[in-house]
Design a protein around this nucleic acid. Structure first.
Length: 266
DNA sequence: ATTGCTTCCTGAGCGC
DNA sequence: TGCGCTCAGGAAGCAA
């Protein structure tokens, strides 16, 4: 499940591999994968002039003033190939380049999407996103403001993309464990000091995870089809015991698994 | 305004 | 061996 560090790793890889390449075609292999797809513009996308990340979205701008917005959801992969070497079982779309290389969008569960917009179009899903957690503006005062009147558990709030853009289930678990804060604690009950700890641990975990090319639990791969390494540094997600030897508890919050240590996290 | 449930989708893992 | 069940989960859409 690609979260911010995994998407950042993919974007870094794309910048190495496909920046300045000319798109020959974009093919939809499974219907519904590409939104706003217009056959006429297909050959006219042009050259890829920039590749960026916003939250868990990948944004590629082209020389003919289009932008491709890609969300991988849980199992989406973008794999760059010079020659078709492997068979991928769940190809949803193909981006073909002039030099006979291609970017394959493979996605088992088919939740991932590609959207096409004109460069200056407003994109609703991006407009709604909260702050980037690795930005300077993301601090305890921002969280305090956002958490006023929020009775939801902190775990759920960390996953809310309108508040923080890019966190997913694994990192939300890891951040709260490292901050020693219970995932059940209500947002509006957290002091500035606690929020400061959350901010610090968020940055720390994300920066370390980016350094190790993300976390591979099952499906996530880099553009070169390689796994990440941060799974070796997980302290609570899918663990049985915490560092102090206490039994990790597993519960459901908002339909997702929460792992935490009831002793260490208060 | 906020919260919580359902839907999308498929493969892995489990018990029998 | 194979069947049926549960689980994994990001975000949209809708109901309360």
């Amino acid at each position: 499940m690609p979260e911010l560090p995994e998407v950042q790793t993919i974007v870094n890889g794309l910048n190495e591999k496909i920046l300045n390449k000319k798109i020959v075609s974009l093919n939809e292999v499974r219907e519904g994968t590409i939104q706003n797809f217009i056959d006429d513009i297909n050959p006219e996308l042009g050259i890829i002039v920039s590749i960026k990340r916003r939250g868990k979205y990948i944004i590629m701008e082209t020389s003919n003033n289009y932008k491709l917005i890609i969300h991988l959801r849980m199992t989406g992969k973008l794999i760059y190939e010079r020659l078709p070497e492997k068979m991928y079982s769940h190809v949803r779309a193909n981006l073909m380049f002039e030099d006979d290389t291609r970017l394959i969008f493979d996605d088992v569960r088919a939740f991932g999407k590609i959207q096409i917009y004109k460069k200056d179009d407003e994109v609703e899903s991006l407009e709604k996103l909260g702050l980037e957690p690795v930005s300077k503006d993301f601090n305890e005062k921002y969280l305090k403001r956002k958490f006023i009147n929020r009775k939801s558990p902190i775990k759920n709030l960390l996953l809310n993309q309108r508040i923080i853009a890019g966190l997913g289930n694994i990192y939300a678990n890891e951040i709260l464990y490292r901050a020693r804060i219970s995932p059940l604690k209500k947002g509006n009950e957290l002091s500035l000091k606690k929020l400061k700890t959350i901010v610090e641990k968020t940055k720390e975990v994300l920066e370390q995870a980016i350094k190790y090319n993300g976390t591979t639990i099952s499906d996530y791969r880099s553009v070169e089809d390689k796994t990440g390494e941060f799974q070796n540094f997980l302290k609570v997600y899918r663990k049985e015991y915490c560092e102090c030897g206490h039994q990790i508890k597993k519960i459901k919050q908002a339909g997702r698994s929460t792992y935490y240590c009831p002793v260490c996290q208060k």
